[in-house]
Amino acid sequence: MANFNTHLNGAFAVSGIMALTVYKAGLINDSGFLMCMALGTIGGLLPDLDSDNSTPIKLGFNITSFVFAFGLVMHWRNELSLLSLIALWLAGYGFMRYVVFNIFTSMTVHRGIIHSVPYMAVLGLATVSLSYYVLGNALTASWFFGLFLFGGAMVHLALDELYSVNLMGMKMKRSAGTAMKFYQHKDKWWYLLLYGLIALLVYFAPPVTEFWQQVYDPAPWAQLKVGILPDLLEDYLR
């Protein structure tokens, strides 16, 4: 399987190119461009959340713990004293970082259901709804956010499958087929739950028709043809 740096760099490179493409087409604004890059890169690390000692899970829970503690403080900032807010911040951080983290790692197995396509699809669709319904972002941007998160995760899974092939001897390693999974019989009930969640999230997702209309509209993509080289060729042909 690929290591942390490979997943990070691979997801960042692919997300950067794709985000720059849709940004140049005018489908997302400046903040949307940065968010797509960030979500795509994060997505490239998500499948390894089921590895107890991996860098993504430690980094992810550290960030989540900070955000959770910060949210508690912001919510109670007018009701509590300074000392109480400090205590609340420490308690919130400690709860997420140690209690929730230990529960999560004890319940997950590396390359289990988290390291699968349907699990990442659930996270991608949940991101779309969270962005649109809760955060109030634009419809097109929200769908791109979810797609970039899912796309980054697919880069991760694809890299793991690629690294499961011994190119020198053209042989498949034992890890082949364990990365990009759609179903495993031993976890059939979990996969049934995942596909049920996907159906539910698709049903309640923001309207996708308008998003696809914008994506299929040739006008935004025509802007990608404008550049120095095409202009020089046009002048030359004249």
Score class of each variant (00 low, 15 high):
A205H: 11
F204S: 13
F12R: 13
L45F: 05
L45T: 02
V22R: 05
A91P: 01
Y23T: 03
G71C: 11
K188Q: 13
V22C: 04
F150C: 01
L72I: 12
A153I: 01
L139Y: 04
L193A: 15
F148K: 13
H156E: 07
V122N: 05
Y191W: 08
A87I: 11
P230N: 08
L233S: 05
I103C: 11
G60V: 02
F204L: 11
T21H: 05
V202N: 01
S131I: 06
V165Q: 03
A19F: 09
S81H: 06
T21F: 10
R77V: 12
S142W: 06
D187A: 15
T209S: 14
G92W: 07
P47R: 05
G169E: 13
L34H: 07
L39Y: 10
F150D: 01
L192K: 01
M18D: 01
Y236K: 14
S106D: 11
R174F: 09
S31A: 11
F33K: 01
G10H: 05
A179L: 03
P47D: 08
I57V: 15
G152T: 10
A2I: 05
I103H: 06
M107W: 07
L46Q: 01
Y183T: 02
E234C: 03
L135P: 00
V128Y: 02
V100R: 07
M96D: 00
A38E: 02
S131C: 11
F66N: 01
Y98D: 13
V122L: 04
G152P: 08
I114E: 00
R77C: 10
G169V: 05
G152K: 09
P56R: 05
T6V: 14
I86K: 08
R174I: 08
T6R: 10
I113M: 10
D50T: 04
W76M: 12
A176I: 03
A158G: 00
P220T: 06
G71M: 12
A69M: 03
A11K: 09
T55R: 15
L85R: 13
V165F: 15
L27R: 09
Y133K: 13
S116E: 09
P218W: 12
I198N: 01
Y119A: 15
S164Y: 10
M168L: 14
S164K: 08
M96F: 12
N5Y: 13
D217A: 11
Q184Y: 00
H75D: 10
H7R: 10
V14W: 04
S81R: 09
H7Y: 06
L85V: 02
C36R: 07
M96E: 00
F148D: 04
A69K: 07
A19H: 08
G196H: 04
